[in-house]
């Protein structure tokens, strides 16, 4: 599986993502600058965590205007896999690739801790190596992870099996405890918790490995 990580000004989990991808795939990920207009030939594009453009205006809003987004939208339209983690999820909702929006945490505080998640669906390229209903622990680190969408959208996400991860103890006020969702074509995943931070026991766990193993199996 060939992968690329997008680097925006003030991305700060881009290297974590690249390290995890190299550890899992044995291949270096291409680092793609936000001002580039083309992606290299890759199977997976990762939008990493961070505070792109200082979260100016709204988190993810400026990143969505960057040059590389056109290529990312084209990649997604062709069925290419896109994974948005944390700020990457915020960019994906701003871009319309995923529905809804991420708002200020209900408790107003930045939340940085490991959280328990239920894997709601194993029917996807991102979760096929997990058991449906399994509990995993990923860290969260965000101030704006409070997922919002209108009831109609939430019902559709539930009805179509597009809620991939749900918090077991909601840290941010997210609607229906949503931590991660898929697009309708099931090739774009956005989630607030960080699977790339739990691929090595040295850094606190290995529950994220199966997400990358799923992608490797699905995309190689």
């Amino acid at each position: 599986m060939k992968s690329a990580v997008i680097v925006f000004p003030a991305s700060n989990c881009d290297r974590d993502a690249a390290t995890a991808l190299e550890e899992m795939t044995g291949k270096k990920a291409a680092m793609v600058w936000h001002q580039d207009s083309e992606l290299p030939d890759v199977d997976l594009v990762v939008l990493p965590g961070g505070f792109s453009y200082g979260d100016y205006l709204r988190c993810g809003a400026m990143a969505n205007q960057s040059k590389i987004m056109g290529a990312i939208k084209a990649h997604a339209a062709k069925g290419g896999a896109v994974l948005g983690i944390c700020n990457g999820f915020q960019v994906l909702t701003e871009s319309g690739l995923l529905p809804g929006a991420l708002m200020r945490n209900a408790g107003l505080k930045f939340v940085c801790k490991p959280v328990s998640l239920r894997v709601e669906e194993s029917q996807s390229s991102f979760t096929r190596k997990y058991e449906k209903g399994q509990t995993v622990t990923f860290p969260v680190a965000h101030g704006e992870g409070n997922y919002y969408a209108d009831d109609e959208t939430l019902n559709r996400l539930d009805g179509e099996g597009r809620v991939m991860f749900r918090y077991q103890d909601n840290p941010n006020g997210s609607a229906r405890d949503i931590a991660g969702i898929l697009n309708q074509k099931r090739n774009v995943l956005g989630l607030m918790p960080h699977p790339e931070r739990v691929v090595d026991p040295l850094t606190g766990g290995t529950d994220g490995r199966k997400l990358f193993e799923s992608l490797i199996e699905a995309l190689s």
Partner: peptide, 8 residues
């Protein structure tokens, strides 16, 4: 296009 996110 930019100034407001009309979802919210």
């Amino acid at each position: 296009k930019l100034l407001a996110n009309t979802v919210i």
